[in-house]
Design a protein around this nucleic acid. Structure first.
Lengths: 343, 343
DNA sequence: GTGAAAGCGCTAACAC
DNA sequence: GTGTTAGCGCTTTCAC
């Protein structure tokens, strides 16, 4: 008899409707082995008529693998991550993969539980988008069961695709040095993943030391992921009061917040203070922001990461973790200028 | 004996390891019916030792339903959508649902194929985040098999959760009217979903007519989703040349781009031109942008949408589509001011 | 309280 | 070419 109403039609319903066996239907659906023209037509008609849609779950169960990537992202509210997330999804889709997202708000426990859930969903791969997490515990939980790629956040395990943080920081600092700045502060935004921050810091230090200048690292404090209120003005005022004429922020968001502070404090950028960021989010290019920054090639990062994952998922690549670094470039805008000669 | 190596352990492996039947293991995992304390411990130990992780696919297959929502979003590069996406994911996670995202770039075909794929994955519900698509065709393809909610984009089918577009546009326009502006242009950004745009336009028209002013609607042209190059300066110059002193943009991104244009053209905001946006993206609050705008309550929109979907998925709500409208408020910043008295 | 057995919707040999 | 069959890993009656 007919199938139960209210239930999605199955391959069996199609089979009986078309008067063939379910394997034949299966063959047709997968565009597989030679099926007689006439049979295929009958099946297709039945599919159409019943509004049949293959159940991916069942397929994945028997094939023992899905075509879904799990993407763990710190904060979609941060334009850099949002832009990266978009590119990752696009690249994945182009290769026939869907993307499951988890926004962890930078909470380590959330990272762990999200990953757990994704593994239970048997994702074909895991993408970490700039997640700072306890990598040891994470590694334990992921094991080597599923291909994993860290994007824009160097890790000591799993594949890594990241920008050349060290070189980027170096050219950014060098840019400030060449403008004649002596007292250049490195402003560390806690949102930036630790390992990435270390690399950027080391690039900064290198450039500073080469110029025989003293590195000064200041840590930005954040209570949440949002833009900060005026409460940090004091801290910034202090930084500026001791002769600092330039700041290199570990990311654009921090730099933009600094710009806000400076405006509030009546400090002119770039006349009194030069500011350089890192990332080159879209916002940085707005005329009113016009932030000099180090551009990360977002589409390329995403492409390489997904390519890697797809290759591993398909078994085309196996073995030891692969680490790819892509170049960055300095985008000079109007937040930096030559240091003002002392009066 | 022993399970095959290289394969994830199954409930059966756990069963034999613990010396019980698989149903017992199943009972333990689901924290279900009374299981003897001792048995539970043995099972748990085995789970731990084997690193067993339940296969959600198998569970979903037999239960005939997943706990994954499909989220269709136009462009994660647009901060408003990115912020909404984040909230939707958070709300879903809190209720035990995962989120599968598709970024459609505003391409109708992409919407359709994304939805198709998500339905094949048997998502428990569908969220449309401001997707302008062919709703008729979409409806055909979704049918009434899966709960669907449109967020911030009114639709004639499915549940709808959206801001009060009409009222928002009205207060925005009213604000400009009260500031003494006579020639107020409505700038329509094509990114904004059609139905939402219509509502905003109608609010604008109403306020204009009440003030006995002539509505003027100008359509923004976009070649891609990105911020526009200087190529639109001409068009904007033209708008401004005919005595326009205020513009109400159908969204913040358009308003911010207008700000850019104005800067380039040497038009001062708000002295020469007042600008109001719609959405209140984070960027709008930056001191350097300081855009007067209509705030959409993003967290609330997301919460209501997910609540709705979860209720439908759980069968707690059935029947005709429900439409919820949430209030908006005008956030006055520094992009608007009283019209300058003619010299 | 625990186990046996029958599926969930599909794929993938393997016969015919 | 097409049909038969045996699972994929789990839940869920229903006996014991």
């Amino acid at each position: 008899m007919g199938r139960q109403i209210g239930r999605a039609p199955t391959i069996l319903d199609v089979a009986s409707e078309a008067g063939v066996s379910k394997s034949t239907v299966s063959n047709v659906i997968r565009g597989s082995t030679a099926v007689a023209e006439a049979t295929r037509d009958r099946v297709l008609r039945a599919v159409d008529q019943l509004g049949y849609r293959p159940n991916v779950l069942a397929r994945n169960l028997v094939q023992r693998q899905t075509s879904v990537f799990g993407v763990v992202v710190g904060d979609l509210g941060n334009p850099f991550y949002a832009e990266m997330a978009k590119h990752v999804e696009r690249e994945a889709a182009q290769r026939g993969f869907r993307a499951m997202f988890c926004n962890t708000q930078g909470d380590d426990d959330m990272v762990l539980s999200s990953v757990e859930s994704m593994l239970e969903h048997r994702v074909a791969g895991l993408v970490f988008l700039a997640t700072s997490g306890d990598h040891v515990q994470l590694r334990d939980s992921v094991g080597d069961r599923v291909p994993t790629v860290f994007v824009s956040c160097p890790s000591d395990w799993g594949d890594v695709v990241c920008a050349d943080d060290r070189a980027g920081a170096e050219i950014a600092t060098q840019h400030l040095v060449e403008l004649g700045h002596k007292r250049i502060v490195y402003l560390a935004d806690p949102i930036v993943e630790d390992a990435a921050d270390r690399n950027r810091q080391s690039g900064y230090r290198e450039a500073m030391e080469r110029a025989r200048l003293t590195p000064v690292v200041v840590h930005w404090e954040r209570t949440s992921g949002d833009l900060l209120p005026a409460s940090i003005d004091g801290k910034v005022a202090q930084i500026l009061s001791d002769g600092t004429t330039a700041v290199f922020s570990s990311n654009d968001l921090g730099a933009i917040e600094l710009l806000e502070c400076a405006d509030r404090l009546g400090v002119h950028v770039p006349e009194d203070l030069s500011v350089v960021g890192f990332d080159d989010v879209v916002m940085a290019g707005l005329a009113r922001i016009s932030l000099t920054t180090v551009r990360q090639p977002k589409p390329e990062l995403a492409r390489l990461a997904v390519e890697m994952l797809a290759a591993r998922a398909g078994g085309d690549v196996t073995g030891r973790p692969i680490r790819r670094t892509v170049g960055v470039e300095l985008v000079v805008r109007r937040s930096t200028s030559a240091v003002r000669t002392a009066v």
